[in-house]
Amino acid sequence: MKRPVVLFIATTLDGYIARENGEINWLYEVEGDGDNGYSEFYESIDTVLMGNKTYEHTFELADQFPYPDKKCYVFSRSKHDPNPHVTFVTENVPGFVEKLKEEEGSKIWIVGGAEILDVLLKGKLVDEFIISIMPTILGKGIPLFKKDNPEMKLFLRETKRFGQIVQLHYVVNNDVPQS
Rank of each mutant, 00 (worst) to 15 (best):
M1K: 09
M1R: 08
K2I: 13
K2N: 14
R3F: 10
P4F: 02
F8G: 07
F8S: 13
A10R: 01
T11Y: 00
T11L: 06
Y16R: 03
A18K: 01
A18H: 00
E20K: 13
N21Q: 08
G22L: 05
E23D: 15
E23L: 05
I24G: 01
N25W: 04
L27R: 01
Y28F: 15
Y28W: 13
V30S: 04
V30F: 05
V30R: 02
G32S: 07
D33M: 12
D35K: 03
N36T: 11
Y38G: 08
E43W: 01
S44R: 12
T47G: 08
V48G: 04
V48I: 15
L49C: 10
G51Y: 03
G51Q: 06
G51C: 08
N52P: 00
K53M: 14
K53N: 15
Y55K: 06
E56W: 00
T58Y: 01
A62Q: 06
D63E: 15
Q64V: 14
P66V: 09
Y67K: 04
Y67I: 10
P68S: 06
P68L: 04
D69T: 14
D69S: 13
K70E: 04
K71P: 01
K71Q: 12
K71W: 01
C72F: 00
S76G: 06
S78H: 11
V86H: 02
V89Q: 08
E91F: 03
N92H: 13
N92R: 05
P94M: 06
G95T: 08
F96G: 03
V97C: 07
L100D: 03
L100E: 05
E102C: 07
E104A: 13
E104T: 11
E104H: 03
E104C: 02
G105L: 04
G105V: 07
S106A: 10
S106P: 00
W109H: 08
V111M: 06
A114R: 07
E115R: 10
E115V: 14
L117W: 00
L120Q: 02
K124Y: 04
V126Y: 02
D127G: 06
F129T: 09
F129H: 11
I131N: 04
S132H: 10
M134V: 12
G139L: 08
G141M: 04
G141S: 05
I142R: 02
K147C: 08
K147W: 02
K147P: 07
K147S: 15
E151W: 08
M152R: 11
L154F: 11
L154W: 09
L154G: 07
F155T: 14
L156A: 12
R157F: 04
E158R: 14
T159Q: 12
T159G: 08
K160V: 09
F162Y: 15
F162N: 07
I165D: 03
Y170H: 07
Y170C: 05
V171R: 11
N173E: 11
D175C: 03
D175V: 02
P177I: 12
Q178P: 02
Q178M: 14
